[in-house]
């Protein structure tokens, strides 16, 4: 399944990934991504019928923590590394809902 990516597709994925891609870089990325997709094409031939996907090595099950308050209030430490913060709020440009 040779799939290739064009500049429009790069723009669409970049929008999903929230990356500003300069228009002159789109073609380069399109070529690079197409090359990666060519690599992926080999997967189609793998004999995986009847095999369950493996998302977690070793197929562990979820361990649950006790229902106890364990977190301490660290909001000042977190606020200290924030680009823009005021009175416990992270600030972003006005969002119109």
């Amino acid at each position: 399944m040779p799939v290739s990516v064009d500049s429009a597709k790069v723009r669409a994925i970049a929008e999903l990934a929230r990356l500003a891609i300069p228009s002159e870089a789109e073609a380069v990325l399109a070529t690079e991504l197409s090359a990666v997709l060519d690599l992926f094409a080999a997967l189609a031939a793998a004999p995986v019928d009847g095999l369950a996907p493996l998302a977690h090595p070793g197929d562990p099950t979820l361990r649950l923590r006790a229902d106890l308050v364990t977190e301490t209030d660290q909001h000042e430490a977190f606020a200290a590394v924030a680009p823009a913060e005021s009175a416990g709020y992270y600030l972003v440009p006005k969002v119109i809902e």
Partner: peptide, 16 residues
């Protein structure tokens, strides 16, 4: 939670 009216030209995000 987003707070839209407490800050000028900005939205405040409360992540508690």
């Amino acid at each position: 939670k987003s707070v839209h009216d407490a800050f000028h030209a900005e939205t405040g995000i409360d992540l508690n």
